[in-house]
């Protein structure tokens, strides 16, 4: 089933990719499926293959195996460094 998700990128990922967010249409079952779709673009998108990548679904931290639903907001970012 084709669904729509909004993907956001932060910090070093945002800078490397040159965009803050993107609307995607595709057949995504999980957050990782969204990531794999982006990774296929190659080039700068390789940044999303970093082991320490963190992700969120609808503004809550999640694992890459988290299921996604139509209209979800998915975010990818490097390890957080606040405090």
């Amino acid at each position: 089933m084709t669904i729509h998700v909004q993907v956001q990128f932060f910090a070093r990922f945002r800078e490397t990719l040159g965009i803050e967010s993107e609307n995607l249409e595709g057949s995504f079952a999980t957050v990782d499926a969204v990531r794999q779709y982006l990774l296929q673009r190659g080039g700068v998108w390789e940044v999303l293959s970093e082991q320490s990548i963190m992700c969120a679904r609808n503004q809550e931290l999640c694992s890459l195996s988290e299921p996604v639903e139509p209209g979800d907001e998915v975010a990818f970012f490097p390890t957080v460094t606040g405090g």
């Binding site: 910090a11 490097p78 606040g82 405090g83």
Partner: peptide, 22 residues
């Protein structure tokens, strides 16, 4: 907060800007 809150630090250093690593 250090490990779960979505904040990222970018430093301005003597050798240019850099993102702080976790």
């Amino acid at each position: 907060l250090k490990t779960r809150a979505p904040f990222w630090k970018k430093e301005t250093t003597s050798e240019g800007p850099r993102w702080v690593e976790g």
